[in-house]
């Protein structure tokens, strides 16, 4: 009886893993196969929108298996609010992989073990946005830091056109949790 129970648990676990993988690949969810070495990460914020990015980090922290702390002395990733002018980007994020930022090339970094990331928000555009929209932008850029790519689901924070979306949808959560 116990053995049967064990088989059932193993089968469900395997199906869940395969399911998460299929969800990820079916939606082209990831920018690469890489990930952070740990699900516990430390953030530091520079510049404008400290509250918006704090709220955005809390959304990922409270709804996924990521544990996001705050420590500017020993950080894994930075959120920033700076004025990059009328450059055509509300924000952008990049990631580095390898020891001592030895490789930040996109071909390798998104597939590697992440060592550092930045989520940048452009004050030039976001200054005219309301706090919810700013939180969306920071939530979106942070999603890239966990290697999530853009998608077109109406409920997704990774959809670039949905400025009022600040909650994660089921797929956002599943995509992150399948890695961490």
């Amino acid at each position: 009886m116990q053995r049967r129970e064990w088989h059932r648990t193993a089968l469900i676990s395997a199906m869940t893993l395969v399911g998460c993988f299929l969800v990820g690949t079916a939606f082209g969810a990831y920018l690469g196969s890489g990930k952070w070495p740990s699900s516990s990460l430390r953030r530091c914020h520079l510049g404008s929108y400290a509250t918006a990015c704090s709220n955005a980090a809390a959304v990922w922290n409270n709804n996924t298996q990521l544990t996001l702390g705050y420590n500017c002395g020993s950080l894994n990733f930075q959120t920033l609010g700076g004025n990059y002018g009328n450059n055509g980007f509300f924000g952008y994020a990049y990631i580095c992989a390898g020891p001592r930022e030895s490789d930040c090339n996109d071909q390798q970094a998104w597939n590697g073990t992440y060592t550092y990331a930045e989520a940048r928000n452009n004050v030039y555009y976001l200054d005219s946005w309301n706090p919810t929209q700013r939180q969306f932008n920071c939530t979106h850029e942070l999603g890239h830091c966990w290697s999530l790519g853009h998608d077109s689901r109406a409920s997704s924070v990774m959809n670039t056109g949905r400025r009022s979306t600040i909650a994660l949808d089921e797929t956002n959560r599943a995509n992150v949790n399948s890695k961490y």
């Binding site: 920018l31 055509g88 980007f89 509300f90 924000g91 952008y92 994020a93 990049y94 580095c96 930022e101 030895s102 490789d103 930040c104 090339n105 996109d106 970094a109 932008n137 979106h140 850029e141 890239h144 790519g149 853009h150 670039t160």
Partner: peptide, 8 residues
């Protein structure tokens, strides 16, 4: 070092 970003 090559950095490549995802832009919104």
């Amino acid at each position: 070092l090559e950095y490549s970003a995802q832009g919104n």
